[in-house]
Design a protein around this nucleic acid. Structure first.
Lengths: 239, 239
DNA sequence: CAATCTTATGGTTAAATTGACCACAAGTAT
DNA sequence: ATACTTGTGGTCAATTTAACCATAAGATTG
Protein backbone atom coordinates (compact mmCIF):
# COMPACT_ATOMS: atom_id res chain seq x y z
CA UNK A 1 0.00 0.00 0.00
CA UNK A 2 3.00 2.26 0.15
CA UNK A 3 3.04 2.95 -3.58
CA UNK A 4 -0.62 3.72 -3.47
CA UNK A 5 0.19 7.27 -4.29
CA UNK A 6 0.91 6.45 -7.88
CA UNK A 7 -2.22 4.40 -8.28
CA UNK A 8 -4.51 6.95 -6.87
CA UNK A 9 -3.28 10.39 -7.49
CA UNK A 10 -1.13 10.78 -10.50
CA UNK A 11 -2.04 11.15 -14.12
CA UNK A 12 -0.27 8.35 -15.94
CA UNK A 13 1.89 9.57 -18.77
CA UNK A 14 2.54 6.20 -20.29
CA UNK A 15 -0.14 3.72 -19.36
CA UNK A 16 -3.32 5.62 -20.05
CA UNK A 17 -6.71 4.12 -19.45
CA UNK A 18 -7.98 0.91 -20.88
CA UNK A 19 -10.85 2.51 -22.73
CA UNK A 20 -10.81 2.57 -26.48
CA UNK A 21 -13.46 5.11 -27.18
CA UNK A 22 -16.10 7.46 -25.99
CA UNK A 23 -19.27 8.31 -27.82
CA UNK A 24 -22.20 10.56 -27.14
CA UNK A 25 -25.80 9.40 -27.28
CA UNK A 26 -28.72 11.72 -26.99
CA UNK A 27 -32.27 11.07 -25.84
CA UNK A 28 -34.35 13.67 -27.66
CA UNK A 29 -37.74 14.16 -26.06
CA UNK A 30 -40.68 15.65 -27.89
CA UNK A 31 -44.29 16.19 -26.88
CA UNK A 32 -46.98 15.77 -29.49
CA UNK A 33 -50.72 15.29 -29.19
CA UNK A 34 -50.39 14.88 -25.47
CA UNK A 35 -47.84 12.11 -25.82
CA UNK A 36 -44.20 12.03 -24.82
CA UNK A 37 -42.00 10.71 -27.58
CA UNK A 38 -38.35 10.04 -28.29
CA UNK A 39 -36.52 10.53 -31.58
CA UNK A 40 -34.69 7.43 -32.79
CA UNK A 41 -32.61 6.74 -35.85
CA UNK A 42 -31.95 3.63 -37.85
CA UNK A 43 -28.53 2.13 -37.59
CA UNK A 44 -26.60 1.95 -40.81
CA UNK A 45 -23.68 -0.40 -40.45
CA UNK A 46 -22.58 -3.79 -39.25
CA UNK A 47 -24.59 -6.45 -37.44
CA UNK A 48 -27.10 -4.03 -36.14
CA UNK A 49 -28.01 -2.66 -39.56
CA UNK A 50 -31.64 -1.72 -39.69
CA UNK A 51 -32.12 -1.69 -35.95
CA UNK A 52 -33.15 1.43 -34.11
CA UNK A 53 -31.05 3.32 -31.64
CA UNK A 54 -30.36 6.69 -30.11
CA UNK A 55 -28.78 9.34 -32.29
CA UNK A 56 -25.20 9.82 -31.30
CA UNK A 57 -21.69 10.45 -32.48
CA UNK A 58 -18.15 11.26 -31.53
CA UNK A 59 -16.37 14.04 -29.77
CA UNK A 60 -13.92 16.07 -31.83
CA UNK A 61 -10.52 17.15 -30.72
CA UNK A 62 -10.66 20.55 -29.02
CA UNK A 63 -14.40 20.35 -28.58
CA UNK A 64 -15.99 20.23 -25.16
CA UNK A 65 -18.42 17.38 -24.64
CA UNK A 66 -21.32 19.80 -24.27
CA UNK A 67 -20.38 21.35 -27.57
CA UNK A 68 -20.14 17.93 -29.15
CA UNK A 69 -23.62 17.06 -27.95
CA UNK A 70 -25.00 20.35 -29.22
CA UNK A 71 -23.32 19.87 -32.57
CA UNK A 72 -24.69 16.36 -32.99
CA UNK A 73 -28.13 17.56 -32.03
CA UNK A 74 -28.02 20.34 -34.57
CA UNK A 75 -26.74 18.06 -37.31
CA UNK A 76 -29.74 15.84 -36.83
CA UNK A 77 -32.52 18.28 -36.01
CA UNK A 78 -31.38 21.59 -37.45
CA UNK A 79 -31.99 23.13 -34.03
CA UNK A 80 -29.59 25.11 -31.93
CA UNK A 81 -30.23 26.73 -28.57
CA UNK A 82 -31.98 23.69 -27.33
CA UNK A 83 -32.40 22.51 -23.76
CA UNK A 84 -29.68 19.89 -23.45
CA UNK A 85 -28.18 18.36 -20.32
CA UNK A 86 -25.79 15.58 -19.61
CA UNK A 87 -27.24 12.50 -17.93
CA UNK A 88 -24.19 10.41 -17.06
CA UNK A 89 -21.74 7.95 -18.56
CA UNK A 90 -22.76 4.42 -19.33
CA UNK A 91 -19.71 2.29 -18.89
CA UNK A 92 -20.45 -1.40 -18.75
CA UNK A 93 -17.48 -3.20 -20.33
CA UNK A 94 -19.80 -5.22 -22.56
CA UNK A 95 -22.32 -2.59 -23.52
CA UNK A 96 -20.98 -2.72 -27.05
CA UNK A 97 -20.09 -6.24 -28.07
CA UNK A 98 -17.07 -5.86 -30.33
CA UNK A 99 -14.92 -3.53 -28.30
CA UNK A 100 -15.03 -1.27 -25.30
CA UNK A 101 -16.87 1.98 -25.84
CA UNK A 102 -18.14 4.27 -23.15
CA UNK A 103 -20.98 6.59 -24.00
CA UNK A 104 -21.97 9.87 -22.46
CA UNK A 105 -25.74 10.13 -22.30
CA UNK A 106 -27.44 13.44 -22.94
CA UNK A 107 -31.09 14.37 -23.05
CA UNK A 108 -32.74 17.19 -24.94
CA UNK A 109 -36.19 18.75 -24.75
CA UNK A 110 -37.35 20.20 -28.01
CA UNK A 111 -40.38 21.94 -29.47
CA UNK A 112 -41.98 19.59 -31.96
CA UNK A 113 -43.68 22.24 -34.06
CA UNK A 114 -40.47 24.06 -34.92
CA UNK A 115 -40.22 24.49 -38.69
CA UNK A 116 -36.48 24.02 -38.83
CA UNK A 117 -36.95 20.71 -37.09
CA UNK A 118 -39.60 19.53 -39.50
CA UNK A 119 -37.45 20.49 -42.47
CA UNK A 120 -34.45 18.64 -41.08
CA UNK A 121 -36.27 15.47 -40.20
CA UNK A 122 -37.70 14.83 -43.66
CA UNK A 123 -34.11 14.42 -44.85
CA UNK A 124 -33.32 11.60 -42.45
CA UNK A 125 -34.83 8.31 -41.50
CA UNK A 126 -35.28 9.44 -37.94
CA UNK A 127 -38.62 8.59 -36.38
CA UNK A 128 -40.56 9.53 -33.27
CA UNK A 129 -41.48 6.69 -30.91
CA UNK A 130 -43.96 6.94 -28.08
CA UNK A 131 -42.14 6.61 -24.79
CA UNK A 132 -44.50 3.81 -23.81
CA UNK A 133 -43.75 1.94 -26.99
CA UNK A 134 -40.02 1.84 -27.54
CA UNK A 135 -38.76 -1.16 -29.52
CA UNK A 136 -35.66 -3.16 -28.70
CA UNK A 137 -32.73 -0.91 -29.42
CA UNK A 138 -29.08 -1.50 -30.13
CA UNK A 139 -26.48 -1.74 -27.38
CA UNK A 140 -27.76 -0.48 -24.02
CA UNK A 141 -29.90 2.24 -25.51
CA UNK A 142 -33.07 0.99 -23.84
CA UNK A 143 -31.33 1.35 -20.50
CA UNK A 144 -30.27 4.88 -21.41
CA UNK A 145 -33.82 5.84 -22.30
CA UNK A 146 -35.18 4.34 -19.10
CA UNK A 147 -32.63 6.24 -17.10
CA UNK A 148 -33.36 9.47 -18.94
CA UNK A 149 -37.07 9.15 -18.28
CA UNK A 150 -36.53 8.60 -14.59
CA UNK A 151 -34.20 11.57 -14.59
CA UNK A 152 -36.66 13.72 -16.50
CA UNK A 153 -39.40 12.88 -14.01
CA UNK A 154 -37.28 14.12 -11.14
CA UNK A 155 -35.96 17.11 -12.96
CA UNK A 156 -39.29 18.35 -14.20
CA UNK A 157 -40.56 18.56 -10.64
CA UNK A 158 -37.52 20.47 -9.43
CA UNK A 159 -36.95 22.97 -12.19
CA UNK A 160 -39.15 24.76 -14.70
CA UNK A 161 -37.89 22.89 -17.75
CA UNK A 162 -41.10 21.35 -19.05
CA UNK A 163 -41.78 24.48 -21.06
CA UNK A 164 -39.02 23.46 -23.44
CA UNK A 165 -41.33 20.78 -24.80
CA UNK A 166 -44.16 23.21 -25.50
CA UNK A 167 -44.57 25.99 -28.05
CA UNK A 168 -43.41 29.43 -27.02
CA UNK A 169 -47.00 30.31 -26.10
CA UNK A 170 -49.13 27.71 -24.40
CA UNK A 171 -52.27 27.29 -22.35
CA UNK A 172 -52.35 26.13 -18.78
CA UNK A 173 -54.16 22.96 -19.77
CA UNK A 174 -51.44 22.09 -22.29
CA UNK A 175 -48.89 22.52 -19.54
CA UNK A 176 -50.90 20.34 -17.20
CA UNK A 177 -51.27 17.61 -19.81
CA UNK A 178 -47.52 17.70 -20.25
CA UNK A 179 -46.97 17.13 -16.56
CA UNK A 180 -49.59 14.42 -16.47
CA UNK A 181 -47.90 12.62 -19.34
CA UNK A 182 -44.36 12.90 -18.04
CA UNK A 183 -45.18 12.01 -14.45
CA UNK A 184 -47.87 9.52 -15.41
CA UNK A 185 -50.42 10.92 -12.99
CA UNK A 186 -53.80 12.61 -13.20
CA UNK A 187 -54.16 16.15 -12.01
CA UNK A 188 -57.00 18.51 -11.18
CA UNK A 189 -57.41 21.35 -13.66
CA UNK A 190 -58.39 23.88 -11.10
CA UNK A 191 -55.77 23.02 -8.52
CA UNK A 192 -53.06 22.97 -11.17
CA UNK A 193 -53.99 26.48 -12.33
CA UNK A 194 -53.93 27.79 -8.81
CA UNK A 195 -50.57 26.30 -8.02
CA UNK A 196 -48.73 27.30 -11.17
CA UNK A 197 -50.22 30.80 -11.33
CA UNK A 198 -49.42 31.34 -7.70
CA UNK A 199 -45.72 30.89 -8.50
CA UNK A 200 -45.95 33.95 -10.74
CA UNK A 201 -43.35 32.70 -13.16
CA UNK A 202 -45.64 32.61 -16.17
CA UNK A 203 -46.21 35.77 -18.14
CA UNK A 204 -49.90 36.00 -19.10
CA UNK A 205 -50.30 37.20 -22.68
CA UNK A 206 -53.07 39.25 -24.24
CA UNK A 207 -53.65 36.45 -26.67
CA UNK A 208 -55.87 33.43 -26.80
CA UNK A 209 -55.82 30.08 -28.52
CA UNK A 210 -56.81 30.01 -32.19
CA UNK A 211 -58.87 27.49 -34.13
CA UNK A 212 -60.22 25.46 -31.28
CA UNK A 213 -63.77 24.19 -31.27
CA UNK A 214 -64.49 25.45 -27.80
CA UNK A 215 -63.84 28.46 -25.65
CA UNK A 216 -60.31 29.61 -26.41
CA UNK A 217 -57.92 29.62 -23.47
CA UNK A 218 -55.53 32.36 -22.51
CA UNK A 219 -51.94 31.92 -23.63
CA UNK A 220 -48.98 32.11 -21.27
CA UNK A 221 -45.26 32.30 -21.73
CA UNK A 222 -42.40 31.14 -19.55
CA UNK A 223 -40.03 33.98 -18.80
CA UNK A 224 -36.52 33.00 -17.79
CA UNK A 225 -35.81 36.47 -16.41
CA UNK A 226 -38.75 36.35 -14.07
CA UNK A 227 -37.65 32.92 -12.93
CA UNK A 228 -34.09 34.07 -12.31
CA UNK A 229 -35.37 36.99 -10.28
CA UNK A 230 -37.60 34.78 -8.17
CA UNK A 231 -34.79 32.30 -7.67
CA UNK A 232 -32.52 35.05 -6.42
CA UNK A 233 -35.16 35.91 -3.85
CA UNK A 234 -35.08 32.34 -2.60
CA UNK A 235 -37.95 30.94 -4.61
CA UNK A 236 -37.74 27.23 -5.22
CA UNK A 237 -39.69 25.69 -8.05
CA UNK A 238 -41.36 22.48 -6.97
CA UNK A 239 -44.16 20.36 -8.33
CA UNK B 1 -26.18 16.33 -45.38
CA UNK B 2 -26.77 13.13 -47.28
CA UNK B 3 -23.96 11.26 -45.61
CA UNK B 4 -25.13 12.40 -42.23
CA UNK B 5 -25.99 8.84 -41.45
CA UNK B 6 -22.39 7.90 -40.97
CA UNK B 7 -21.67 10.87 -38.77
CA UNK B 8 -24.53 10.35 -36.45
CA UNK B 9 -25.45 6.77 -36.22
CA UNK B 10 -22.62 4.40 -36.81
CA UNK B 11 -19.85 3.27 -34.53
CA UNK B 12 -16.65 4.10 -36.38
CA UNK B 13 -14.36 1.12 -36.73
CA UNK B 14 -11.33 3.03 -37.84
CA UNK B 15 -11.47 6.63 -36.70
CA UNK B 16 -12.39 6.34 -33.06
CA UNK B 17 -12.86 9.36 -30.87
CA UNK B 18 -10.34 12.09 -30.31
CA UNK B 19 -10.08 11.48 -26.60
CA UNK B 20 -6.86 10.16 -25.18
CA UNK B 21 -7.94 9.09 -21.77
CA UNK B 22 -10.60 8.82 -19.15
CA UNK B 23 -10.03 9.04 -15.45
CA UNK B 24 -12.25 8.82 -12.41
CA UNK B 25 -12.27 11.44 -9.68
CA UNK B 26 -14.16 11.03 -6.47
CA UNK B 27 -15.53 13.62 -4.08
CA UNK B 28 -15.57 11.89 -0.71
CA UNK B 29 -17.83 13.64 1.78
CA UNK B 30 -17.52 13.22 5.50
CA UNK B 31 -19.32 14.84 8.42
CA UNK B 32 -17.39 15.60 11.54
CA UNK B 33 -18.15 17.87 14.49
CA UNK B 34 -21.10 19.29 12.65
CA UNK B 35 -19.03 20.20 9.63
CA UNK B 36 -19.15 18.86 6.12
CA UNK B 37 -15.73 17.96 4.81
CA UNK B 38 -14.10 16.53 1.71
CA UNK B 39 -11.14 14.16 1.56
CA UNK B 40 -8.29 15.40 -0.62
CA UNK B 41 -4.92 13.94 -1.51
CA UNK B 42 -1.62 15.49 -2.38
CA UNK B 43 -0.47 15.18 -5.94
CA UNK B 44 2.76 13.30 -6.44
CA UNK B 45 4.12 13.95 -9.89
CA UNK B 46 4.89 16.61 -12.45
CA UNK B 47 4.19 20.31 -12.35
CA UNK B 48 1.46 19.99 -9.83
CA UNK B 49 3.57 18.15 -7.28
CA UNK B 50 2.50 19.04 -3.78
CA UNK B 51 -0.81 20.52 -4.79
CA UNK B 52 -4.05 19.09 -3.50
CA UNK B 53 -6.67 17.40 -5.59
CA UNK B 54 -9.43 14.83 -5.60
CA UNK B 55 -8.49 11.20 -5.22
CA UNK B 56 -8.86 9.43 -8.51
CA UNK B 57 -7.49 6.86 -10.85
CA UNK B 58 -8.00 4.83 -13.98
CA UNK B 59 -10.50 2.34 -15.24
CA UNK B 60 -9.22 -1.17 -15.87
CA UNK B 61 -10.06 -3.26 -18.88
CA UNK B 62 -13.15 -5.38 -18.23
CA UNK B 63 -14.13 -3.32 -15.23
CA UNK B 64 -17.32 -1.30 -15.17
CA UNK B 65 -16.88 2.33 -14.26
CA UNK B 66 -18.90 1.87 -11.07
CA UNK B 67 -16.59 -0.96 -10.10
CA UNK B 68 -13.58 1.16 -10.88
CA UNK B 69 -14.88 3.94 -8.65
CA UNK B 70 -15.58 1.49 -5.85
CA UNK B 71 -12.14 -0.06 -6.18
CA UNK B 72 -10.39 3.31 -6.06
CA UNK B 73 -12.43 4.29 -3.05
CA UNK B 74 -11.54 1.12 -1.23
CA UNK B 75 -7.86 1.44 -2.08
CA UNK B 76 -7.81 4.83 -0.45
CA UNK B 77 -10.18 4.44 2.48
CA UNK B 78 -10.28 0.73 3.16
CA UNK B 79 -14.06 0.90 2.95
CA UNK B 80 -16.35 -1.11 0.76
CA UNK B 81 -20.12 -1.00 0.61
CA UNK B 82 -20.09 2.73 0.60
CA UNK B 83 -22.68 5.09 -0.78
CA UNK B 84 -21.22 6.03 -4.15
CA UNK B 85 -22.91 7.61 -7.15
CA UNK B 86 -21.76 8.98 -10.45
CA UNK B 87 -22.03 12.73 -10.90
CA UNK B 88 -21.23 13.29 -14.56
CA UNK B 89 -18.31 13.62 -16.96
CA UNK B 90 -16.17 16.71 -17.00
CA UNK B 91 -14.95 17.17 -20.50
CA UNK B 92 -13.50 20.57 -21.18
CA UNK B 93 -10.73 20.12 -23.77
CA UNK B 94 -8.31 22.09 -21.62
CA UNK B 95 -9.19 20.82 -18.19
CA UNK B 96 -5.82 19.09 -18.07
CA UNK B 97 -3.12 21.18 -19.65
CA UNK B 98 -0.77 18.69 -21.24
CA UNK B 99 -3.20 16.44 -23.06
CA UNK B 100 -6.87 15.68 -23.32
CA UNK B 101 -8.29 13.71 -20.42
CA UNK B 102 -11.94 13.36 -19.56
CA UNK B 103 -12.85 12.53 -16.02
CA UNK B 104 -15.91 10.86 -14.62
CA UNK B 105 -16.89 12.49 -11.37
CA UNK B 106 -18.21 10.40 -8.51
CA UNK B 107 -19.23 11.33 -5.01
CA UNK B 108 -19.25 9.17 -1.90
CA UNK B 109 -20.81 9.61 1.54
CA UNK B 110 -18.90 7.88 4.30
CA UNK B 111 -19.02 7.43 8.05
CA UNK B 112 -16.09 9.27 9.54
CA UNK B 113 -15.83 7.20 12.70
CA UNK B 114 -15.34 3.90 10.89
CA UNK B 115 -12.24 2.16 12.26
CA UNK B 116 -11.17 0.70 8.94
CA UNK B 117 -11.24 4.22 7.54
CA UNK B 118 -9.09 5.63 10.31
CA UNK B 119 -6.57 2.83 9.91
CA UNK B 120 -6.34 3.37 6.18
CA UNK B 121 -5.95 7.09 6.31
CA UNK B 122 -2.96 7.12 8.62
CA UNK B 123 -1.06 5.34 5.83
CA UNK B 124 -1.65 8.07 3.28
CA UNK B 125 -1.22 11.78 3.06
CA UNK B 126 -4.89 12.30 2.52
CA UNK B 127 -6.50 15.11 4.51
CA UNK B 128 -9.98 16.31 5.33
CA UNK B 129 -10.86 19.85 4.24
CA UNK B 130 -13.90 21.79 5.37
CA UNK B 131 -16.23 22.28 2.45
CA UNK B 132 -16.23 26.02 3.13
CA UNK B 133 -12.47 26.13 3.05
CA UNK B 134 -11.25 24.23 0.02
CA UNK B 135 -7.88 25.43 -1.32
CA UNK B 136 -7.06 25.86 -4.98
CA UNK B 137 -6.93 22.39 -6.45
CA UNK B 138 -5.32 20.89 -9.53
CA UNK B 139 -7.08 20.78 -12.88
CA UNK B 140 -10.83 21.49 -12.62
CA UNK B 141 -11.21 19.79 -9.27
CA UNK B 142 -12.68 22.87 -7.62
CA UNK B 143 -15.40 22.88 -10.25
CA UNK B 144 -16.06 19.20 -9.63
CA UNK B 145 -16.44 19.80 -5.90
CA UNK B 146 -18.76 22.73 -6.46
CA UNK B 147 -20.87 20.65 -8.75
CA UNK B 148 -20.95 17.76 -6.32
CA UNK B 149 -22.07 19.99 -3.48
CA UNK B 150 -24.91 21.41 -5.55
CA UNK B 151 -25.84 17.89 -6.52
CA UNK B 152 -25.68 16.67 -2.93
CA UNK B 153 -27.95 19.48 -1.82
CA UNK B 154 -30.60 18.42 -4.29
CA UNK B 155 -30.18 14.74 -3.69
CA UNK B 156 -30.32 14.93 0.08
CA UNK B 157 -33.74 16.54 -0.12
CA UNK B 158 -35.11 13.92 -2.50
CA UNK B 159 -33.77 10.71 -1.06
CA UNK B 160 -32.84 9.48 2.41
CA UNK B 161 -29.10 9.37 1.82
CA UNK B 162 -27.88 11.74 4.52
CA UNK B 163 -27.73 8.85 6.98
CA UNK B 164 -24.68 7.57 5.14
CA UNK B 165 -22.69 10.40 6.70
CA UNK B 166 -23.77 9.55 10.25
CA UNK B 167 -22.95 6.65 12.55
CA UNK B 168 -25.23 3.64 12.38
CA UNK B 169 -27.10 4.97 15.42
CA UNK B 170 -27.76 8.67 15.69
CA UNK B 171 -29.94 11.21 17.45
CA UNK B 172 -32.50 13.38 15.75
CA UNK B 173 -30.50 16.47 16.56
CA UNK B 174 -27.42 15.03 14.88
CA UNK B 175 -29.50 14.37 11.80
CA UNK B 176 -30.88 17.88 11.86
CA UNK B 177 -27.42 19.40 12.22
CA UNK B 178 -26.37 17.38 9.19
CA UNK B 179 -29.18 18.81 7.12
CA UNK B 180 -28.49 22.29 8.38
CA UNK B 181 -24.86 21.99 7.40
CA UNK B 182 -25.42 20.50 3.97
CA UNK B 183 -28.26 22.80 3.00
CA UNK B 184 -26.78 25.81 4.78
CA UNK B 185 -30.03 26.69 6.53
CA UNK B 186 -31.28 26.88 10.09
CA UNK B 187 -34.03 24.59 11.19
CA UNK B 188 -36.40 24.32 14.11
CA UNK B 189 -35.66 21.38 16.39
CA UNK B 190 -39.24 20.69 17.19
CA UNK B 191 -40.55 20.96 13.65
CA UNK B 192 -37.74 18.81 12.35
CA UNK B 193 -38.53 16.04 14.83
CA UNK B 194 -42.17 16.08 13.92
CA UNK B 195 -41.52 15.95 10.20
CA UNK B 196 -38.93 13.20 10.19
CA UNK B 197 -40.72 11.05 12.76
CA UNK B 198 -43.95 11.43 10.88
CA UNK B 199 -42.34 9.74 7.86
CA UNK B 200 -41.86 6.63 10.00
CA UNK B 201 -38.69 5.57 8.25
CA UNK B 202 -36.49 5.75 11.32
CA UNK B 203 -36.38 2.82 13.67
CA UNK B 204 -36.37 4.09 17.28
CA UNK B 205 -33.92 2.12 19.38
CA UNK B 206 -34.06 1.28 23.06
CA UNK B 207 -30.76 3.02 23.51
CA UNK B 208 -29.67 6.49 24.39
CA UNK B 209 -26.61 8.61 23.83
CA UNK B 210 -23.62 7.91 26.05
CA UNK B 211 -21.17 10.27 27.67
CA UNK B 212 -22.95 13.53 27.04
CA UNK B 213 -23.04 16.23 29.65
CA UNK B 214 -26.76 16.74 29.40
CA UNK B 215 -29.91 14.73 29.05
CA UNK B 216 -29.12 11.85 26.70
CA UNK B 217 -31.18 11.67 23.55
CA UNK B 218 -32.83 8.60 22.10
CA UNK B 219 -30.96 6.88 19.29
CA UNK B 220 -32.51 6.08 15.93
CA UNK B 221 -31.47 3.98 12.99
CA UNK B 222 -32.27 4.26 9.30
CA UNK B 223 -33.77 1.05 8.00
CA UNK B 224 -33.51 0.51 4.28
CA UNK B 225 -36.17 -2.20 4.36
CA UNK B 226 -38.71 0.09 5.95
CA UNK B 227 -37.89 2.71 3.37
CA UNK B 228 -38.28 0.27 0.48
CA UNK B 229 -41.64 -0.82 1.86
CA UNK B 230 -42.86 2.74 2.19
CA UNK B 231 -41.61 3.57 -1.29
CA UNK B 232 -43.54 0.66 -2.74
CA UNK B 233 -46.65 2.07 -1.13
CA UNK B 234 -46.08 5.34 -2.94
CA UNK B 235 -44.23 7.20 -0.23
CA UNK B 236 -41.94 9.92 -1.49
CA UNK B 237 -39.15 11.19 0.69
CA UNK B 238 -38.89 14.95 0.56
CA UNK B 239 -37.27 17.58 2.70
C1' DC C 1 -28.20 19.97 47.81
C1' DA C 2 -30.14 23.81 45.41
C1' DA C 3 -29.50 26.54 41.60
C1' DT C 4 -28.26 26.60 36.97
C1' DC C 5 -27.32 25.12 32.43
C1' DT C 6 -28.01 22.32 28.32
C1' DT C 7 -30.38 19.59 25.36
C1' DA C 8 -34.68 16.53 24.79
C1' DT C 9 -39.26 16.23 23.94
C1' DG C 10 -43.93 17.42 23.42
C1' DG C 11 -47.28 20.82 22.72
C1' DT C 12 -50.14 25.14 20.65
C1' DT C 13 -51.69 28.23 17.23
C1' DA C 14 -52.13 30.83 13.09
C1' DA C 15 -51.03 30.73 8.37
C1' DA C 16 -50.37 28.48 4.16
C1' DT C 17 -51.07 24.70 1.08
C1' DT C 18 -53.51 20.84 -0.81
C1' DG C 19 -57.17 17.88 -2.53
C1' DA C 20 -61.71 17.17 -3.73
C1' DC C 21 -65.26 19.34 -5.29
C1' DC C 22 -68.86 22.73 -7.46
C1' DA C 23 -70.63 26.29 -10.57
C1' DC C 24 -70.80 29.19 -13.98
C1' DA C 25 -68.63 31.37 -18.35
C1' DA C 26 -67.68 31.36 -23.04
C1' DG C 27 -67.38 29.55 -26.83
C1' DT C 28 -68.53 25.60 -30.79
C1' DA C 29 -71.47 22.27 -32.96
C1' DT C 30 -76.17 20.54 -34.10
C1' DA D 1 -82.26 27.20 -28.77
C1' DT D 2 -79.88 23.40 -26.86
C1' DA D 3 -76.30 20.50 -25.88
C1' DC D 4 -71.47 19.98 -25.41
C1' DT D 5 -66.73 21.13 -24.35
C1' DT D 6 -63.21 23.40 -22.18
C1' DG D 7 -61.94 27.67 -19.42
C1' DT D 8 -61.99 29.98 -15.18
C1' DG D 9 -62.93 31.12 -10.54
C1' DG D 10 -64.44 29.69 -6.21
C1' DT D 11 -65.53 26.91 -1.61
C1' DC D 12 -64.33 24.05 2.22
C1' DA D 13 -62.27 20.64 5.00
C1' DA D 14 -58.01 18.34 5.77
C1' DT D 15 -53.20 18.60 5.99
C1' DT D 16 -48.85 20.71 6.43
C1' DT D 17 -45.83 24.33 7.89
C1' DA D 18 -43.65 27.97 10.63
C1' DA D 19 -43.00 30.16 14.68
C1' DC D 20 -43.26 29.67 19.05
C1' DC D 21 -43.70 28.07 24.21
C1' DA D 22 -43.26 24.93 28.14
C1' DT D 23 -41.68 21.41 30.62
C1' DA D 24 -38.58 17.22 31.38
C1' DA D 25 -34.34 15.08 32.23
C1' DG D 26 -30.23 15.03 33.15
C1' DA D 27 -25.25 17.07 34.17
C1' DT D 28 -22.48 20.70 36.38
C1' DT D 29 -21.33 24.06 39.77
C1' DG D 30 -20.78 26.47 44.05
Amino acid sequence: MSNQKNDIESVPIIEGSAIDDISIDCVIFGFSNGILEVLLVQHGEGDSKGEWGLPGGWIKKDESIDNAANRLLEELTGLDNVFLEQLKVFGDPNRVSFRRVLTIGYYALIKREDDKLKASLVLTDAKWFKIKNIPNLIFDHNEIINYSLKHLRNRVRQAPIGFNLLPEKFTLLQLMKLYEEILDVEMDKSNFRRKILHMKLLKPLDERQQDVSHRAAKLYQFDQEIYDLLTQKGFNFEF
